[in-house]
Amino acid sequence: MSGVDRSADRRQRFAARVRRTPGYLAVKDGVLPRLRGNTALTDLVWRVFTPAHGLGEARRMFRSDGLDVPDADRLPVIAFTVLGADDAGVDRALRAITELRRDTAAFRAVLVVDRPVLARVRDHGIVADHVIGEADWYGDADAYAEYVGRRLVSVVQGFRVWHLAHLGPGGQVSATDEQLIRAIRGAMSSSGAAAPDDSPSGAHP
């Protein structure tokens, strides 16, 4: 179990003990869903606590390699897909994402690929995710699109993605996606998250 630290091991055992506590299932399956689903209670909590929300408020553990900025754990996660691309397309995608990160220092990145380039993606400080390429799919052809759809839902949910940008086989970021990404930092500053030093030079490819 290389890489598993002992305090995590202890937390895991504690969680397992809690799950075995009498009444655990009643709380998990009964009480909590009722609390979450209670619109009056939700409204009251908002009125009383006015919880901060929006860009740059929530802290989340996620890789932010190469982003030497304060509060990198508050940055949103953006997932990019580059599917059906050749090596040159993947390289263009990596260059485009790296440039956007360097310029904005405003997001953490996932790149979804369908080629054996996982290490190359990681070398750019970007989390790699993978879908089986269409040419390698051995189920029914019709099922492939459904599979990719399911996998993208998983990417969005699993990484709590703030925006999903499809780069296409050419590996280029669309003008509208670029417009949105370049606006993140300004939106974060207005919601109270720390901005990087004067220039975005804190970001390294």
């Binding site: 890489g3 995590a8 937390r11 895991q12 989340r60 553990m61 996620f62 890789r63 932010s64 990681r122 989390v127 790699a128 699993g158 990484f159 709590r160």
Partner: peptide
């Protein structure tokens, strides 16, 4: 490790 996520997530 590759994602840097916490264990629960």
């Amino acid at each position: 490790q590759a994602t840097g996520m916490d264990s629960g997530e």
